[in-house]
Design a protein around this nucleic acid. Structure first.
Lengths: 220, 220
DNA sequence: AATAAAATTTAGACAAATCTAAAAATTTAA
DNA sequence: TTAAATTTTTAGATTTGTCTAAATTTTATT
């Protein structure tokens, strides 16, 4: 089945809302889509006709399995393109969202497969969000503090708890950003400092104080 | 100014037609666009309102300078994406057109600039068609027979006159395809054979008979 | 339980892009 | 140069996605 750009955008939006709330209502979807409740009702009828929704008049609604499958394909494309834009074309990670919003609607399945392969089948996008695989399986994010991970395990930076300018300056110096892949080479018991190896960089030492503020994840 | 996908498709199509015939008429544009003459008239009104056309009722029409600029931007995007699909994602060159038809409408200028840079500012797409630069300048195609080009000049294969299965098998063996870049290392006067160096391949020898059927181009 | 408030849907309209059928302008050709 | 053929345009409809305003249903409150 084929879907319009508008349908795909609604489906994706419903998907994200129902992840948080289980069931979605017309007003919140309208707010999220920057449109009017009446427009939402119109689109819901179309999506119900295409059998993508559990939906009853005046009650809430959510995607059924078919709808979730479509949503995951769009999310997959969005995040793969974001990865491409940042890792290949060297965009700043905070500039890529609107472009990926357009690219995610390109329809070729083979394009997605080849892009995925070219990028090395990445599991997380530059914002740290998981990229569903071609079957719609979402890699589980196992978030840990950098000071706790085993040595030699390749992990991806997913969040930073201390977002002061001083901390960000430090992370920039170490070339650590959201999505950066790194390993811990050694842990020094004396002061809790770590020798880490950032992908494509030389190893360096960071203090326990820094490590405590960096959270990372890896696939199970 | 912004343009819809539909407007861009009409503009591109008018551009290609007027390259051949100087001026374009409603019926031929309708045929080329797989649509009806009445639909063409409707769109022409819009394009005239946006001051992209020289157009008078019942007379022919053509793009003015502003219209040509838009056309060249779309052509540039189309051909850069085709290059990307073939050279980076390893699509067969005969499969990329419909995908590039979608990608060419992605609007970000920065995306095009970065893509162009990433690809190494290519001058010709995988079909041998010239890629306009960011100012709309089209590289001049200087087509010559492979047997006639100076040694050590990097050239791009643009056409093959003998398209028999035997010839294509041979070219495939040598890893020569449309768009392949190569140099002639030596010319042997004895039998007219050539030692050529295909980009990323080891040098090899081809007969004068093969060379006579391969046409190449390079920028002036 | 009755009423007020909030959420949702219906009804009717509009813009973009398309279509068919018919009218108008232009070109061709007898 | 007038009639026929061709080309182009207009008129009016259709589809998709959107909107506003009003009506309806559900939920909350007194």
């Amino acid at each position: 089945m084929n879907f319009t750009t508008s349908e795909e955008n609604y489906i994706k939006c419903i998907y994200h809302l129902q992840q948080e709330t289980g069931t979605v209502n017309t007003n919140s979807l309208a707010a999220e889509m920057h449109t009017r409740p009446a427009s939402v009702t119109d689109m819901l009828k179309k999506l119900k006709a295409k059998k993508l929704l559990q939906y009853e008049r005046y009650r809430g609604f959510k995607l059924n399995e078919a709808g979730k499958k479509v949503a995951l394909e769009v999310v997959r494309k969005h995040r793969l393109w974001e990865y491409f834009l940042v890792e290949v074309l060297k965009f700043d990670w905070d500039k890529v969202h609107p472009i990926a919003e357009e690219l995610e609607h390109i329809s070729s399945d083979e394009l997605v497969q080849r892009l995925d392969k070219f990028l090395g089948n990445p599991s997380f996008d530059p914002h740290g969000d998981p990229i569903p695989d071609r079957n719609g399986k979402i890699p589980v994010l196992n978030q840990l503090n950098l000071s706790e991970i085993p040595v030699k395990k390749t992990v991806t930076v997913s969040s930073v708890s201390n977002q002061t300018a001083q901390m960000l300056e430090m992370l920039k110096h170490y070339k650590i950003a959201l999505g950066t892949q790194l390993q811990v080479n050694k842990k020094f018991a004396f002061d809790g400092s770590l020798e880490i190896k950032v992908l494509k960089q030389s190893p360096c030492i960071i203090s326990e104080q820094v490590a405590k503020n960096v959270f990372v994840h890896y696939e199970l």
